[in-house]
Design a protein around this nucleic acid. Sequence first.
DNA 1: GTCTATAATTCGATAGAC
DNA 2: GTCTATCGAATTATAGAC
Lengths: 207, 207
Amino acid sequence: MNTPIQSNTKEQILNVAERLFAERGFAGTSLRSVIGEAGVNLAAVHYHFGSKEELFRAVVSRIAKPVVAAQLERLAHCQANSEPPSVEAILEAFLTPPLKVICSGGEPGINRAQFLGRCRTEPDSIQTIAQQEFEASEQSFLDVLQRSLPDQSRTELSWKLDLVIAVLIRVATEAGKPNALLQGNSPEDIHLVVSRLVRFLASGMRA
Amino acid sequence: MNTPIQSNTKEQILNVAERLFAERGFAGTSLRSVIGEAGVNLAAVHYHFGSKEELFRAVVSRIAKPVVAAQLERLAHCQANSEPPSVEAILEAFLTPPLKVICSGGEPGINRAQFLGRCRTEPDSIQTIAQQEFEASEQSFLDVLQRSLPDQSRTELSWKLDLVIAVLIRVATEAGKPNALLQGNSPEDIHLVVSRLVRFLASGMRA
DNA sequence: GTCTATAATTCGATAGAC
DNA sequence: GTCTATCGAATTATAGAC
């Protein structure tokens, strides 16, 4: 069984890049600072990722992929129960996966939350990269929301979902801090927080 | 009249620091990059502000002071009309001043919005500095909210107000972009956006 | 004082040996 | 896959003409 051992260089770079991007932002993080802490060669970054932007995209993608998959699965599940689903069910499907993934990671989890928050204050060219990774999910949720709230324009639902995401990211970034909404990372903790957020947001979506 | 002319060195440093902190974050901004663009000596920073952290606080403070003052004035005004005021009136008093200040500045206004967004993704030690500058206002609004919504615990109102701020900052940061909620900066634009946000948030505050 | 030319640095990216 | 060496672009600093 000569299964080629996956070098840990790639993952090492991703781990350091995730933390440094979270701490210093995209422009503030040089590739040389990443390879320094990761203990790898500069050329390895370009070999594995191609460019700094693609490295950034890979960091986003590693976070986004399981989240988006879980969101779409939950969305399909609640559509199977009723079509269109209630606003509450849609919000629950949207909010639960990111909170689960981000909270179940300990120290790296905090980095990921901070990283996602950072993405939204980056210049447009970078913010777009992050946006693209979550776009498929957001469009699907917008489609279902549109059917659940047919009286509202796409534009209106669009900025409302954007504000839902702002709330979600704030909760994730603050997780674990004193007085934060989200303290532990047990399924019960997450379920409680999601139901509170749904109550906080659902009527605003309808308004 | 030997009134000492206020050197513009201090303001110059503040202007450049505001922009660089917004673009690169606290850690990503070196004092040398600030003094470089400001055209002043490194020692001037320590003379006027004492340290990099205090410079950061000064930048926050310059943004926060007029915003907080206007918020408290509006809060007092709506308390004069009815005590306790409605949730809608409280939210309107809270949201209007920052949107006005941030939107009426052109290019620097965008910097300020981005800066405030950045603050919330900084490490705790830095985030705390920003928090302190807005604390007086937030406490006052929490007090009034508490009387307006006596059934909810302080803790509950606290995280809800925190999410209101997350929404506010998102709207400010996105201002002017395509599909953004806030496009222009006329009083009518701002009033329309505030009323939409109040509708989006008010029922969630009560839930 | 202001402007231009250029030297020095930093950074992302690539080629080629191993 | 990893390394050394180097390129080209962008930025910053300095020198010198006017």
